[in-house]
């Protein structure tokens, strides 16, 4: 159980001893979440994790609520994870796999969201290749919108499950001063962008590492900084991994890779691939994470991915608990607006 009190002076101004009531109708990114909000998600996810351990991992909390999962982009784990999470809470789940079509994106999205709402959806989980698409959906949808990943912009549920997984392995669940490295293609990564917010908000000593062509924009972000946030950007994998407590490897997104950013995948693997040899610089108990899907042999060696440090399957399992927590918390605010 994570402590709700005892919050050290953090990066984000937190009202002292906040009662931590959830006040967000949508989850579009993690940048709107305060530290007490994040703590509440973690605490609720703990309870959901316990539910998952039961013989029948199902509770009636969202009975009668319609959850529509609308994915404009390929996905296995996020989509299934949201579906399992919603079903574990007894919601009625509708899946729409909108294979990206040639229809003009803005208009089709608006129409689809209106249709989904007319069909009785109370909550909408949306993934779209265009950054900001969930914000547009939130403007027209009368229920709650959860961003399941939009373009390069944000992937809030992934960042929260990564945080949950990290906390589960750190003494006291505290990230304060822990060195966490995000290694790989951060340029194209919504996972990295959302993780920067949550990890620095929780006090981690965050290092972003990759070839300089894949770090564009992040140096400026780090330099701009924010009070109390620790955030370093480097192309030196050795320096990044030195004494690291956790390393998160990111997929090299070939499908988003314009030519010229990398000389070759082979060179990338040689210089930045996460191997056991490279991990020797990290702390002996350091953990390895990857949001998946993995290109084994490119950004992560197969023996690391399947090795004892790997938290990859924990991430998947925790993802269900964290998404249950998010659906549960958001369902409350939806009713607040509609009912009271």
């Amino acid at each position: 159980m994570s402590a709700g009190s005892e919050r050290p002076e953090g990066a984000i101004e937190a009202p002292a001893a906040a009662p931590a009531h959830w006040a967000h109708r949508h989850l579009l990114d993690v940048d709107a979440l305060t530290r007490p909000d994040i703590e509440l998600v973690m605490r609720t996810a703990d309870e959901m994790h316990d539910v998952l351990e039961r013989p029948i991992p199902k509770v009636p909390a969202l009975r009668g609520l319609g959850v529509t999962i609308l994915f404009y982009e390929a996905s296995t784990r996020t989509r299934v994870s949201f579906e399992v999470a919603a079903k574990n809470l007894s919601a009625d789940v509708v899946n729409i796999a909108a294979a990206s079509s040639s229809v003009s994106k803005g208009e089709s999205l608006v129409d689809t969201v209106r249709t989904v709402e007319a069909l009785g959806a109370d909550m909408l989980v949306i993934r779209h290749s265009v950054s900001g698409a969930p914000y547009l959906a939130a403007e027209i949808f009368s229920g709650s919108v959860l961003n399941g990943g939009d373009g390069w912009h944000a992937h809030p549920s992934q960042a929260l499950l990564d945080l949950y997984t990290l906390r589960s392995r750190l003494p006291g669940g505290l990230l304060e001063g822990r060195k966490v490295v995000i290694l790989g293609d951060v340029l194209h990564s919504r996972v990295a962008r959302s993780n920067v917010w949550t990890l620095t908000a929780m006090g981690a000593d965050l290092w972003i590492c990759g070839p300089s062509t894949l770090l564009r924009g992040f140096e400026a972000w780090a330099a701009r900084g924010a009070a109390g946030r620790r955030f370093t950007v480097t192309s030196d994998a050795g320096a990044a991994l030195q004494d690291a407590d956790a390393v998160m490897a990111l997929r090299i997104q070939k499908e988003r890779m314009a030519s010229g950013l990398l000389p070759s995948l082979r060179e990338y693997a040689a210089r930045y691939g996460l191997t056991n040899e490279r991990l020797r610089a990290a702390r002996p108990d350091a953990i390895v994470m990857h949001p998946g899907p993995m290109n084994e042999g490119v950004e992560i060696a197969a023996d690391v991915a399947a090795g004892p440090r790997s938290m990859v399957t924990d991430q998947v399992h925790n993802g269900v608990a964290v998404r249950m927590a998010l659906l549960y918390l958001l369902a409350g605010t939806r009713r607040t607006e509609a009912g009271a």
């Binding site: 159980m1 931590a20 009531h21 959830w22 509440l40 605490r43 609720t44 703990d46 309870e47 316990d50 539910v51 509770v59 009636p60 909390a61 009668g64 809470l89 549960y328 918390l329 369902a331 409350g332 605010t333 009713r335 607040t336 009912g339 009271a340």
Partner: peptide, 19 residues
């Protein structure tokens, strides 16, 4: 908390305290 029949009536989602 997850078993209450008044979840649709209360103003905010109750904080879960643990089983």
């Amino acid at each position: 908390t997850f078993y209450r029949d008044d979840l649709s009536l209360v103003a905010q989602q109750p904080i879960v305290k643990g089983t």
